[in-house]
């Protein structure tokens, strides 16, 4: 039964917690402790805004084990406002077609369950079309 692998990633999965390089200010997600830009140590927590845009997307029709119940689902490369790109599903598309450049925002959703109905639920980030907020006087 797979537990610790998901548990230790909860900050990343629930809230897009990454890092900011104290040397060159590069924002890093997923956290990697060595700044990809300046190659110095980077261990300062930084929580991302969750806003971004779609860079590429496709529909998974042949899902891996554990994802059968969700297929077909849209998986996208999302570029966060702060720079990094992440791999994530798009959700709550409803009748909207995804497109390159689509503005999206992070939501926390069920990714899958481990070992069916008896196992734990893995929650994590997905992205949805940005909620339209009515213009108010």
């Amino acid at each position: 039964m797979e537990l610790a692998r998901h548990w230790r990633l909860k900050k990343q999965r629930y809230a897009l917690q990454g890092e900011v390089c104290p040397h060159c200010q590069t924002k890093i997600f997923p956290p990697r402790d060595i700044c990809p830009a300046c190659k110095q140590e980077a261990r300062t927590d930084h929580t991302f805004s969750g806003r971004g845009k779609v860079v590429a997307f496709t529909v998974v029709t042949q899902p891996p084990k554990g994802y059968e119940a969700q297929a077909p689902y849209v998986v996208a490369l999302v570029e966060l406002e702060e720079g990094p790109r992440v791999t994530a599903q798009l959700t709550d598309l409803g009748d909207e077609e995804p497109y390159i450049g689509m503005p999206v925002e992070m939501v926390t959703r069920k990714l899958r369950t481990v070992e069916g109905e008896r196992g734990i639920i893995v929650y994590g980030y997905k992205f949805r079309p940005r909620l339209t907020v009515a213009q108010r006087a």
Partner: peptide
């Protein structure tokens, strides 16, 4: 709720 939503995910938002 959508297929990936439950009481926790809705409560969180």
């Amino acid at each position: 709720a959508g297929p990936d939503e439950d009481t926790f995910t809705m409560a969180l938002e």
